[in-house]
Amino acid sequence: MKTWARRHALALATLGLLLAAMISLMVGDMPLTLTQLWGGFMRGDELATTILWEIRFPRLLVAILIGAALAASGVVMQAYFRNNLASPGLLGVSSGGSAGAVVAIGAGWSTISFYILPLTAVLGALAATLAVVGLARRGASTERLLLAGIALNALLGAVTSYVLSNFTLTYERNAQIIFWLLGGLEDRNWDHVWMASPVIILAALLWPLGRSMDLLSLGATEAQSLGVDVRRLRRRMLALATVMTALAVAVAGTVGFVGLVVPHIFRLMVGPEHRRLVPLALIGGATFVLFCDVVGRSVGGLRLGVVTAFLGGPFFLWMLWRRK
């Protein structure tokens, strides 16, 4: 049974994603039946068409893109730091992106151009990444990484609080900032899908790095001795993970634990080999976010970031407890 599941993991994961996608399209304030879903999809049923194409499809696609992006970032960071507790949220990379976004909103820059917000999110995330990488140069033990993450999260949280309390904000901007802090998929439209769409290209660039990531995840010097150009690989990995996290943050705020939970589950299922793990994490991350979003909507509008934290927090503690 276990080997069967292992062999067909990709097919099973895809099936899970399709199922989650369908449920996600059906549930909401205005539940749709399968017939209505089909009617809306074919643009026959007018109400269903509006609900689907204006609200649920964008939300679905944003969920898929950010889930894939966050899970893939987690995989990359875990291989980079050789530590399966490394993830965008715990290391403060998400907070960096979030702080960048909040500054852009608070200062009013985000109204200048559609691209400002993702750009500042990328810059914020990059600053956080570089800080963690700098610290990890002197050793990347679990304690060190987690402490660096705590410090960065606190520092970047302070930036956010400063913007919230000291800028003269309009009600709308305040609401936007709160949105980023909690993380969610409410009111996501096609613009947001467009904003997150580079994730597809980034994921395609990530997959070919899989084999060298295998070697790197067992030690940088060893990988170098076996023929991996470690410096170039690391630069690429960091760029991909940072931009993917930042894009996810730019469209949906800080959604925690996806990059921690999803790679871990699939590593338990199919092992640590990255050429198998990366596609599964992409699909699994998308499924996990969709699932959490459906759960949140079904229990009376819990925000996505709150649901992932409810599920991911205990999971993280369990992982920590299992470590020697």
């Binding site: 050789r82 399966n84 067992l218 010097t221 092992g271």
Partner: peptide, 14 residues
């Protein structure tokens, strides 16, 4: 050139 380190820490279960 092949190299064997003095000690190895394997985080992942290859």
């Amino acid at each position: 050139a092949a190299w064997v380190p003095q000690e190895a820490h394997f985080e992942f279960g290859f």
